[in-house]
Design a protein around this nucleic acid. Structure first.
Length: 401
RNA sequence: GGAGAGGUUCCCGAGUGGCUAAAGGGGGCAGACUGUAAAUCUGUUGUCAUACGACUACGGAGGUUCGAAACCUCCCCUCUCCA
């Protein structure tokens, strides 16, 4: 019966979800969908302050895709208006204000990346400036009157900042309200977000009720921890793997995570069944399985997802080779008097400054064709091409002309 | 509006006239070890210069001084308490 079907779909949707407010309401909406055929509007917002989608986003997008596969529609909200506030996480004290063009540009590249996962036929991309910029002063006052400061201060970071005496600007209170108002404007049935979004998502519920709508169901997905193993994956922390990154670097980055972190990547980014993951853990515990091999498989899985199997295998081979096969190539003009190695390193962008380059050289991090170079004053005089390696990650073939 | 405390290098944070490119920690980078992991250890961490050294930097603008991150004036910003 239809009940069965709803039950089954519910299990699917609940998989990997942290918070769900509330299950009853979700069931009600799903049942209605099956009876009346009107798809749910599943909302998720994205901040267009950067243009790259990384693996952290994909956790959320997979869930969105699931809803689409069950026949629902996704409202992909580009937070161009809310970006002007910046989600008050307390760390972005001076957030760079983006121009209109930059935001549109970001939204565009964002979308093409998003559709590696989402179904474009069932996705509406909307900009929240469409309705937020139309709020006049009267309506804004009305909106702000629907929430009070005490409740606002319940939000974790507001609370902390208030307690520790850091500044909170009044306009930051507008962020949750604006995001909540998005839900009102879209009449969303479900809103998805990371666990750090829970407060904002719940504001949406309250506001919808205040505006006489049926409140949205709120679901959160776990945050993916970034490569550093500490903070959530985020572009601003530089601990991310972008979905458009080359296979080689994607593979290498996965390999660089800690063994502990590997498990949450398995759970959040792969379809490997939990039993298998448990088996791997067991194997490692009794020394029959090497953790490195588990990580290689993880890296293969993730790389293959965005680049296909063959590319993933090639990335693996490159990873174990001293010199990758598809090495970056650099064309350099050799000046008459020769080119100091230090200058070359800077010129290739391997280090930021000459001092940095010199340091790296002195510390033994520079190799030419697999031979360590320690002479900081070395000058390149011959036009023979060679492979230059500076540090662990910077490597390339240099061709002179 | 009143009173007080502050703004230091990527971050936190010491420094109250020359010994300060500025302690300490975090982070970053490099090296050792390893599994091109983590943890640990070592080194390093403003720019230019082979080097001597030069330049830039302690919220902003002026000033005092042979010499200022430090002292004075004004301004900007943050926080706390009072109204």
């Amino acid at each position: 019966m239809s009940d069965e079907r709803v039950r089954h779909e519910l299990d699917q949707l609940k998989a990997g979800i942290i918070d769900l407010y509330t299950e009853e309401e979700l069931v009600k909406k799903m049942t209605r969908f099956h009876k009346e055929g009107k798809p749910m509007i599943v909302k998720a917002g994205f901040d267009p302050t950067s243009s790259d989608i990384h693996l952290g986003h994909t956790v959320l997008m997979n869930k969105m895709r699931q809803f689409q596969d069950l026949g629902h529609r996704v409202a992909y909200v580009v937070g161009d208006a809310t970006a002007m506030i910046g989600d008050p996480t307390g760390r972005n004290k001076t957030r760079k204000v983006l121009t209109r063009d930059e935001i549109l540009e970001h939204a565009k590249t964002y979308a093409t990346q998003a559709f590696k996962i989402l179904d474009p036929q069932k996705t509406e991309m909307v900009f929240n400036s469409t309705w937020l910029f139309k709020l006049d002063f009267i309506k804004l006052i009305d909106l702000t009157s629907k929430y009070n400061v005490a409740r606002m201060l319940e939000r974790e970071d507001f609370k902390n900042r208030f307690k520790s005496g850091d500044s909170i600007s009044v306009h930051e209170f507008l962020y949750p309200l604006a995001q909540g108002y998005d839900s009102v404007a879209l009449k969303s049935d479900v809103e998805l977000g990371g666990t750090d979004q829970i407060f904002n998502l719940l504001v949406g519920r309250k506001l919808q009720a205040d505006y006489g709508q049926e409140p949205q169901v709120v679901m959160t997905v776990p945050l993916l921890v970034g490569l550093d193993g500490v903070q959530k994956m985020s572009k601003s922390y530089g601990n991310y793997i972008g979905v458009t990154e080359p296979a080689d670097s994607m593979f290498a980055k996965v390999m660089s995570i800690s063994d502990d972190l590997m498990w949450s990547y398995y759970e959040l980014l792969t379809t490997v069944p939990v039993e298998e993951i448990a088996a791997m853990k067991n194997g490692i515990a009794n020394d029959t399985v090497h953790p490195r091999d588990c990580k290689v498989n993880l890296a293969l899985f993730i790389t293959a997802r965005f680049h296909g199997e063959p590319a993933a295998r090639e990335a693996k081979e490159n990873f174990y080779r001293d010199v990758p096969s598809n090495l970056a190539e650099y064309a350099v003009t050799l000046p008459d008097g020769g080119l100091p190695l230090i200058d070359l390193i800077v010129q290739l962008g391997f280090t930021e400054s000459k001092g940095d380059a010199r340091r790296m050289l002195q510390q033994g991090g520079v190799y030419i064709d697999a031979n360590k170079v320690s002479d900081a004053a070395l000058k390149i005089t011959s036009k023979d091409s060679f492979v230059l390696k500076a540090g662990k990650k910077k490597i390339g073939r240099v061709n002179f002309s």
